[in-house]
Design a protein around this nucleic acid. Structure first.
Lengths: 238, 238
DNA sequence: CGGTAACTGCGATCATCGTTCGCTGTACTG
DNA sequence: CAGTACAGCGAACGATGATCGCAGTTACCG
């Protein structure tokens, strides 16, 4: 009759070890670690079922005993990487300061594992994602935001960290091609601007990129993050 | 000797029509339109070289006369979709009001073409992306932000629109499975919370999701966007 | 203790996808 | 009119995600 899936939706609601059967030769953690190593070295596209299986020392088909599809493998990797986050620097201080500390940790994580930006968030958060939410909520203690608004603020906060880190990683990805790339972009925009349309873009590009010395990436990140946090933590104006 | 790429980096710096040779039977716009139709109907994964080629009425190999690879095809689609944006509602008013109007347009676009969220921004923006930047910059007129900060603010603004729309689309994607999905998520979180760790998450979840009637998605979007804009437009506090 | 059910490992294999090759035909140049 | 650069495209390649079915392994039940 009606079957009623016993388990299944997400990998986080499915037990790692089955009640019966032989003891698995590998583990989710080991497989995820292998995937992370490959992604760090050669990018997310290099993380194939075959490459991960080979790194673990087995065949591609065997991975499907631990994971339902490639997406779940990436979920495993993403959550395991998030386990590297260290929240001790966000232990106390003002909400803004604590969240900024968490944001810095997140930025470092994205720079360490740029492929995280290529994985879109899964519908159900893994344990380390939940831990992130918990710590961000803890940082919100002392603000006058109501409960649901706090969850929303954490989501926006997390997205902002990802967003800013993404622009930073994009430049790093260009690598040594940065000169060629920036040159092409500049030529392209110059061509557009000189056409007469887009006066505001012309004005913004004309202005010099700050005359008082080169700003470090960390400073850019901090100031952008601080601005966003100011908006998120301010009471809503109805 | 040294060849020196005549053209090439991006599709936007490459002319659509070559100076010599027969007149192409198709066009970038037509191919992009076909791809958009498919993506709207069956998602971005259904946009394969074969399916788009078939929709245009040709073979897969022929598409490579218009596009260097699948990524460029997606770029074409993304920029063409952005051409649907209407900025007339953002013509005047306060910077916040104008940006909010643009944000609403963006939200509607993402809801109309959810697959846009699956395409990550290309290194070089297409014409309609440039138009978006231009209009956002125009909305920033009257603020005291310096030039480079405005470009940064536009980037953050654009990312915020995308981020908020994404959470909204995620729920829509669950579709009728929403009941099952929310149920599973709730059960999952309940299990985690009841373990005793994560006290802040427990507190946030315990609080009722506002007692004064159901809030519409538009209101949620507007309030979140307004909060973020407040942060972006406020002068940096050094 | 023996039988059965549930599970693991995995070789072989499939369907599909992005992309390339090479040929033929066509339009523009000089 | 000859040459060249390009368009269209059938056929094919290599790689990938995923499935099937069988053999070996463990735990539970009577």
């Amino acid at each position: 009759m009606t079957k009623g899936k016993p388990h299944g939706g997400s990998i986080w609601t499915r037990p790692e070890r089955a009640p019966r059967g032989p003891v698995p030769e590998h583990s989710r953690a080991k497989i995820a670690a292998a995937g992370i190593l490959i992604a760090d070295a050669d990018g997310l596209d290099a993380v194939t079922m075959r490459s991960v299986a080979a790194a673990v020392g087995t065949g591609p088909a065997s991975l499907y005993r631990y994971v339902v599809n490639r997406g779940e493998l990436l979920e495993l990797m993403a959550d395991q990487a998030r386990g590297e986050l260290d929240y001790t620097t966000a232990a106390d201080g003002s909400p803004t300061a604590r969240l900024l500390a968490i944001a810095r940790e997140g930025r470092a994580l994205y720079l360490r594992h740029p492929w995280l930006l290529d994985i879109q968030a899964a519908p159900i958060p893994g344990p380390n994602a939940v831990a992130f939410i918990e710590h961000a909520l803890a940082a919100l203690d002392g603000t006058d935001l109501p409960g649901p608004a706090r969850l929303e603020a954490v989501a926006l906060f997390s997205g902002a960290v990802r967003l800013i880190a993404q622009t930073e990683v994009e430049q790093l990805r260009a690598g040594q091609d940065a000169i060629r790339w920036q040159g092409e972009l500049a030529a392209y925009l110059t061509g557009i601007v000189s056409a007469g349309q887009h006066p505001h873009l012309a004005a913004a590009l004309a202005e010099a990129p700050t005359s008082d010395g080169p700003t470090s990436q960390e400073d850019v990140f901090d100031s952008a993050m601080t601005r966003i946090l100011a908006g998120l933590l301010s009471p809503s104006t109805p």
